[in-house]
């Protein structure tokens, strides 16, 4: 199933499964800049060289055509691709206005159990240090 092809450049990148909390070790097989398969990490103490259906086959979404490729702003009820600058300026101006009018606690952040530690740290720092609220929570609550 996962065989490294002879032609082209093949790399194996060691990482951790993105699905449940077990945290199995696995290698992403990368050929010519595309992920073509997954191999279990036999040295990982938790999964010891085995994976489940999601670990082996749950990576195809990465290359799905429906991935978001550009910031979008809803204009007249229709999503319109915009530049990062425009999207961030739009969000920043609205957030600042709401904070000024209704105070920091008029903002709430849903953080992510799917993103990295670093990203979650930065997210809560944004809520607490930039917006000035403790309204930050995520689905660990659920």
């Amino acid at each position: 199933m996962v065989s490294c092809s002879e032609k082209g450049r093949t790399e194996r990148v060691l990482t951790v499964c993105p699905y449940c909390g077990t945290g199995c070790g696995l290698y992403l097989v990368v050929e010519d800049g595309r992920i073509t398969g997954v191999e279990p990490d036999s040295l990982h103490p938790v999964n010891e060289g085995e994976l489940c259906i999601k670990g082996y086959f749950g990576y195809q979404y990465i290359e799905d055509d429906r991935r978001l490729r550009s910031p979008l702003i809803k204009k007249d009820g229709k999503f319109t691709p915009v530049s990062w600058d425009e999207a961030l300026n739009f969000a920043a101006a609205r957030l600042a206005k709401i904070k000024q009018e209704s105070g920091p606690d008029a903002f709430a952040l849903f953080a992510s159990a799917r993103a990295t530690n670093e990203e979650n740290y930065v997210a809560q720092k944004f809520a607490r240090a930039v917006m000035g609220t403790n309204n930050v929570d995520h689905c660990a609550r659920l």
Binding site: P18, T22, R114, N120, A140
Partner: peptide
């Protein structure tokens, strides 16, 4: 047995409304 890859980490990093990292 936590359900998501980094639900532990998101809690550890203070993404809860009552605690800092």
């Amino acid at each position: 047995l936590r359900g998501q890859n980094n639900v532990q980490g998101a809690c550890d990093m203070g993404c809860l409304s009552n605690v800092l990292p």
